[in-house]
Design a binder for these strands. Structure first.
Lengths: 133, 133
DNA sequence: AAGAAATGTTTACAGCCGTAATCGTCACGT
DNA sequence: ACGTGACGATTACGGCTGTAAACATTTCTT
């Protein structure tokens, strides 16, 4: 699902900042939302004004990360890039930068720093088992 | 090892940028280096001039991430923060931001995106086994 | 001794980021 | 019909980043 028709005009996807990412999460969750909706979801927690949300939304539009379509007097915004793509790219960069591109090193670090709960360990074990099937 | 005497003056450690991080990696590797040394290690690959390295070094000094001590006519720079601390903090932030703080989710993603080589899998398995002993 | 080379320090400057305020417009209530 | 409010668009502005150039000083070289 969700291939064809996407990605015309493809300028290399510009980087999404931290604050912008918070907005993206809301859009990914709701699939489509107005500025006010996004503000409802974030303004309290991040201590933002509606104006800030609007700025971030327009920047995301310029960056071609979301689309805006008119709905009556306001606009509805929806993601143009899939969350899994975004997360994948970021993970890639992250592992690249800090662990020489070796996921195992990341794992080693987490283990050593005791950031893995027994639940995490169990879950990862399960994933590994599944991978080998 | 390496407690006491460190961390006087503790202003909350300012954030290190991407370019600065590259410099840190060199210092972590060499433990102590001059601007020219750092440039030797990076300027070609990143297409930087020596001036750029100097700027980054002074910013790192200001940020209290490295110390500079005179050595004849030049200065030698050395890390004030441990790589493992840095990596730990960054990992924390990253997993927090993109995976709701659940490392297992990160693995799930890497696995699903087929970013885990068989070697990675083997290595992680070995680490897991060790963890459980 | 004088010019060249090496070094740290200061200044620069455009672009991105966080965080808005202001402006122009259009719909809605009264 | 008019004021009020909701909305998007435009403008703002200081801080951080990437990427240096210019400057001052000291030391080698010839």
């Amino acid at each position: 699902m969700s291939e064809a028709l996407a990605n015309t005009d493809r300028t290399p996807p510009e980087r999404i900042s931290e604050a912008e990412h918070a907005v993206m999460e809301v859009l990914w969750a709701k699939n489509s939302a107005s500025a006010a909706d996004v503000c409802d979801a974030l303004c309290e927690a991040r201590d933002w004004g509606l104006a800030t949300v609007k700025t971030l939304l327009s920047r995301l539009v310029v960056k071609n990360a979301i689309a805006s379509r008119p709905d009556g007097r306001r606009f509805l915004y929806s993601p143009l890039i899939a969350r899994s793509d975004y997360v994948g790219d970021e993970s890639q960069r992250f592992v690249e930068r800090l662990f020489g591109g070796r996921p195992a090193s990341l794992f080693a670090h987490l283990a050593e720093a005791e950031r893995l709960t027994p639940d995490d360990v169990a879950e990862i074990e399960a994933l590994l088992k599944e991978l080998k099937s």
